[in-house]
């Protein structure tokens, strides 16, 4: 136990927590934007897979990680819009559209991988590129904090910037105002001529864009290859983080860090003699537990009126 604690408080743990939080945070921010516009994007998982495999294939072809990233982002956005088309224009239930997206992506990415490399499990036969890591000047000199914050993949810093960016967009720009109005009261937006469909398309596009970063981080940063279903539920965890964070970028970032913590913990504890299955269960159990606690708190808040009444009667 003592060694576990030491491990958690080590610099290496702090670093790896930020690293594993990155893809979750991207997914979670994607979930926030689409949910603010009134669409629960359950297809994040699939969108991440699509951008992940695209990044690997294109970076191998072009020998440029950045072109790979660009292609991954473009495809993730296009598929998000494709899903959006069915939901917004043709009336497919958003959750089912998301599930369909995930089905298409989980098979389609393997199919694409097979066509591109002749392999169906992992892309190691492709000479794909990795996005660079960044040493933060000055900060990397600070003891403890430096090694935790510095030397991450460039996308980790993008993720942190994205938190601020999403917040600014949603709460400080006219477009963000419209997007929130569409999510909260589509009729009110409609009545002033704001196109609900356009705003939802925009939200899903941004959501796909963010998920695209998450997917590329997985296959071109976190590791240097794409493997079948490599997202392993991170898109879904992102949804949970958004729910837990009150669908607000800041709260969601904090919730994502918590999931990153659980994920890092499971990686760390694998080196101990605890069955790996249990350790790998931690982030998922944490999500379920957090969801339960969150829902309970919400419910008791709604019942608060009762307590107040009790006081007055007494």
């Amino acid at each position: 136990m003592g060694s576990t604690l030491k491990g958690i408080f080590s610099v290496g743990f702090g670093y790896s927590m930020l690293r594993v939080t990155t893809p979750i945070l991207f997914a979670a921010l994607g979930a926030v934007v689409s949910e603010k516009a009134g669409a629960v994007n359950i297809g994040l998982e699939g969108l991440m897979l699509i951008s992940g495999v695209t990044g690997v294939i294109v970076s191998a072809w072009t020998q440029s990680a950045w072109l790979g990233l660009l292609a991954g982002l473009v495809l993730a956005v296009l598929f998000a819009l494709f899903m959006g088309y069915f939901h917004i224009k043709l009336g497919t239930d958003m959750v089912l559209a998301g599930i369909a997206m995930n089905v298409i992506a989980s098979g389609g990415t393997v199919f694409a991988l097979f066509v591109a490399s002749g392999d169906r499990g992992i892309s190691s036969s492709l000479a794909s590129k990795v996005l660079p890591t960044v040493e933060l000047p000055l900060i990397n000199k600070i003891p403890v904090i430096g090694p935790i914050l510095s030397g991450h993949n460039v996308l980790t810093y993008f993720a942190l910037l994205a938190v601020v960016g999403v917040w600014y967009f949603l709460y400080r720009t006219p477009l963000g105002l419209r997007l929130r109005a569409v999510g909260e009261s589509p009729d009110s937006a409609d009545s002033v001529g704001i196109s609900v469909s356009k705003m939802r398309f925009l939200a899903l596009g941004i959501s796909g864009f963010l998920a695209g970063f998450g997917g590329c981080h997985l296959s071109m940063g976190y590791v240097s290859w794409f493997s079948r279903d490599m997202t392993a539920g991170r898109g879904f965890i992102g949804l949970a983080a958004s729910a837990l964070g009150g669908v607000h970028p800041i709260g969601t970032a904090i919730a994502s860090l918590f999931f990153g913590f659980a994920d890092a913990l499971s990686n760390y504890m694998q080196s101990l003699s605890i069955p790996s299955e249990f350790v790998q269960m931690i982030p998922y159990l944490a999500t379920v537990a957090a969801l339960g606690v969150f829902a309970r708190r919400q419910m008791s808040r709604e019942r608060k009126g009762k307590k107040q009444a009790g006081r007055e009667v007494a």
Binding site: R172, A181, S188, A189, I194
Partner: peptide
């Protein structure tokens, strides 16, 4: 049109509801 059931977003302010869609801006900002 003033609808029978008001078309207003409850958590937004009076001003935000009124200018929604024709927001004055300063640069990128609302």
């Amino acid at each position: 049109m003033v609808h029978q059931h008001f078309m207003l977003a409850p958590s937004l302010t009076v001003t935000e509801n009124i200018v929604l869609g024709v927001e004055p801006r300063k640069g990128l900002r609302f």
